[in-house]
């Protein structure tokens, strides 16, 4: 059974097409849902959760129909919204308990579980504080706890690092990474921060102007760039780099003292790397094609589809969705 199987899904807001004929299939694991602002990520997430009804098409998540089995689906999925979405005056533990109650857990279980997940996300000491006293980072953790309270099989995280400072962001990513590795839960991470996706996800869905332009395993989508290599060596590197440059190779040194990314000229034979290393008393320890990172992958696939608009939903007053 696929984790997510979506076929020909469309959703319009008035005459604005937010999702256009979206189809993709994803397996268990961590999935990054990426795209520019207004590409349709949040709309897709809400359609997947049954908060918005698709105008056309449909699909399943964990075998549940996203059109008709929304209650069963939500019992198996945890959703962390992008907005603050807190309830004033409540304390942390009461908020998470309320989330459990709303999922349909027995109240006593919900309360016990709220303590457990708050401990897990690192808010054990703050659980009796009122939500108004929580920092942005702690609110994000709290929302994650509320999504985890009923022990879902799949987590939908909408911009989990939004508004966090670098330290808070790192901490949140560590927490999500820990959650994935410890529990083996599947996660759909919706964000426009590509490094977050690169760090956590094995699969990716790239949305552009409401259409899916790439979906699948990240490794399979990455292009090996033909004339770019990552090289590593042992020995006196200065002479080796100078020899490479003299031979017409563009060398970009990175933070590691004996590694570099190189771009070879036309007619280059890879045996020349070894020959030049021997001449300069170096040993070549690494030679591998340079794979494009997610950022380059993203720009490549979006440029193939044309420049991104400032927003997929142009400046027009739209009324409520479903």
């Amino acid at each position: 059974m696929h984790l997510v199987d979506i076929q020909n899904l469309s959703r319009n807001y008035g005459h604005v097409r937010a999702l256009v004929d979206v189809s993709f299939t994803l397996e268990q694991g961590t999935i990054g849902l990426v795209g520019n602002n207004g590409a349709g990520k949040s709309t897709l997430l809400k359609v997947l959760l049954g908060l918005l009804k698709p105008d056309a098409g449909g699909g399943t998540i964990l075998g549940c129909d996203i059109r008709h089995a929304t209650r069963e689906l939500r019992g198996r999925v945890g959703y962390m919204p992008e907005t603050a979405a807190t309830v004033p005056v409540l304390k942390g533990v009461e908020f998470v308990t309320l989330a459990g109650d709303l999922y349909g857990m027995p109240h006593r279980d919900a309360r016990r579980r709220a303590h457990e997940v708050l401990n897990y996300v690192g808010l054990g000491e703050l659980r009796y504080r009122r939500l108004e006293e929580y920092s942005t980072g702690n609110v994000q953790r709290l929302k994650l706890a509320a999504a985890l309270v009923h022990d879902p099989q799949l987590l939908l995280l909408d911009e989990p690092t939004n508004g966090l400072d670098p330290e808070g962001r790192q901490s949140m990513l560590d927490l999500i990474h820990d959650l994935i590795t410890e529990t083996g839960k599947s996660v759909i991470l919706c964000t426009h921060l590509l490094p977050d996706v690169e760090r956590l996800c094995q699969q990716i869905v790239v949305l552009h102007r409401g259409t899916v332009i790439r979906a699948g395993a990240m490794a399979a989508l990455r292009h090996a760039v033909g004339n770019r290599f990552e090289i590593g060596w042992q020995g006196p590197g200065e002479g080796y780099v100078a020899a490479l440059r003299a031979a017409g190779v563009e060398v970009s040194l990175n933070s590691h003292p004996d590694r570099a990314t190189v771009q070879t000229p036309a007619g280059w034979n890879n045996s020349q790397f070894f020959a030049l290393a021997r001449e300069r008393d170096c040993v070549l320890t690494q030679l591998k094609p340079d794979e494009e990172d997610l950022e380059r992958l993203f720009f490549r696939v979006t440029e193939e589809k044309g420049p991104a608009p400032t927003s997929a939903l142009p400046g027009e007053e739209l009324k409520h969705g479903h």
């Binding site: 019992g75 349909g104 579980r113 401990n119 996300v121 820990d178």
Partner: peptide, 19 residues
């Protein structure tokens, strides 16, 4: 704030009616 070392525990139970 560092990550708490508390482990994740699952939950199994029956969900009741939304009413």
């Amino acid at each position: 704030m560092g990550i708490n070392n508390a482990h994740y525990y699952g939950w199994q139970g029956k969900l009741h009616s939304p009413w």
